[in-house]
Design a protein around this nucleic acid. Structure first.
Lengths: 225, 225
DNA sequence: TCTTATTGTTAGTATTACTAACATTTTTGA
DNA sequence: TCAAAAATGTTAGTAATACTAACAATAAGA
């Protein structure tokens, strides 16, 4: 399994980039360093110029790969969720019990993907990036166009997989998709809250409270009480 | 009750502004028009210059009231949650049953504040603004400084009130604050999802699904099953 | 009426987001 | 093997943004 994970090259929607970053050295160093730098500076202070100087290239060169920094964020986000889906598929491959599979899925959402030193992007870094920045990439005026061009496919696919597990457990539950998207988004926000708005939550950044909270929440919600 | 709501002037943390916008005509027209314009353009395309030209003033004049557009957003956000708290207090004042009060609170979070044509800001407009833009105001690198200067006091106060209701219903429930912040944040995101990422949810923008979803989720979660 | 607070105006700077034009290198296929 | 085509890289720019400074005009208050 480790070697398979190591070799995984995720397919993301080609509308996300101008030129596939994995088709060249420069492209790879762009996404690699961007992951670090966006996290370090935050989207508002991140610029292609700063990124260019970090990787010894120029602004214009980066624009050939990504239309702008917003698209680069969406690209990394898509990559993250595709990676999450791989993790889910592998981790649940030989689990028959749907409740067990749901447990794995929730753990994945709460704790982020497994750490594997892989060839392309570090999923641990990517998780931090997604916690801090990804929602800003959704909540924009351009979301409708982006939605239409299929840019959120990875997020959708991941969500659908977990919805399917829920429907397996309780076929009469009315809101599987709403529940799944709530957990996907809230697990990120609660991670953020525990670090920056501690009064809004009982959870500690590295504690197991979030996992317990979300597991209990989901299990109770989909049960026929 | 109506006349009281009409007269309510919310107190927000003075770190949010340079000069109290309710201390002058210009200030009032800034916050009033900003609510509309931020919503129309989205934060990324909103500028003080555009706002100034709408209200027949100048950029520099607006900078006298707010340090930058980010602080203006946080100001409007604080105003929103303070208004929400007023709504909650009035709507639950004569309800004894904590479960009934919780129901009112959830409805408020899901549907936003009551519409009252009031003297200052239109809560309906503000709700749309908060749905689309407010989370971007939290998820920043400056959140820790802002947190320290008490800028999120209104959000906290609203959350604490509802946590208290939950603790009244079930004093043994472990995560009241986490649950409340989840509902506060997710109800906004689900509103957004229903409009822009419809595949992520069963809810329709104007339907009652979200309310049912969140009510069921909270009631089941805090029950001792 | 004199003082103070409030607004308006002009004019600037540094940075950001992006593009055009062209030079250089690499690939490829005849 | 080598010329044409494709991919990359570099330089140099523009328009817009996010501010700030300095000062003039106006209104309000004691």
């Amino acid at each position: 399994m480790e070697s398979i994970l190591k070799k995984i090259r995720v397919d993301v929607n080609s509308n996300l980039y101008q030129k596939d970053p994995f088709s060249s050295e420069l492209g790879v160093s762009i996404v690699r360093e961007a992951t670090r730098l966006i996290q370090e500076l935050g989207m508002e202070n991140f610029t292609f110029k700063k990124l260019a100087s970090k990787i010894g290239s120029t602004e214009a060169a980066i624009y050939r790969y990504f239309e702008n920094k917003h698209m680069l964020l969406l690209y990394l986000n898509a990559w993250y969720w595709a990676w999450m889906e791989h993790n889910l598929v592998f981790a649940t491959a030989n689990l028959i019990d749907p409740e067990e599979r749901l447990g794995v899925a929730i753990r994945l959402m709460v704790d982020g993907p497994l750490y594997r030193e892989n060839d392309f992007l570090d999923p641990k870094q990517l998780h931090l990036l997604v916690v801090n920045e990804s929602l800003k990439g959704y909540l924009t005026k351009t979301v409708d166009n982006e939605h239409e061009s299929g840019i959120f496919a990875q997020v959708y696919k991941f969500g659908e997989r977990i919805s399917a597990i829920i429907q397996e457990i309780n076929p009469t539950y009315q809101f599987p998709k709403t529940l799944v998207s709530t957990v996907m988004e809230s697990s990120l926000l609660q991670n953020f809250n525990s670090r920056h708005l501690p009064g809004m939550t009982e959870a500690k950044p590295e504690g197991g409270e979030r996992l317990n909270f979300f597991k209990e929440l989901v299990v109770k919600t989909i049960s026929n009480a």
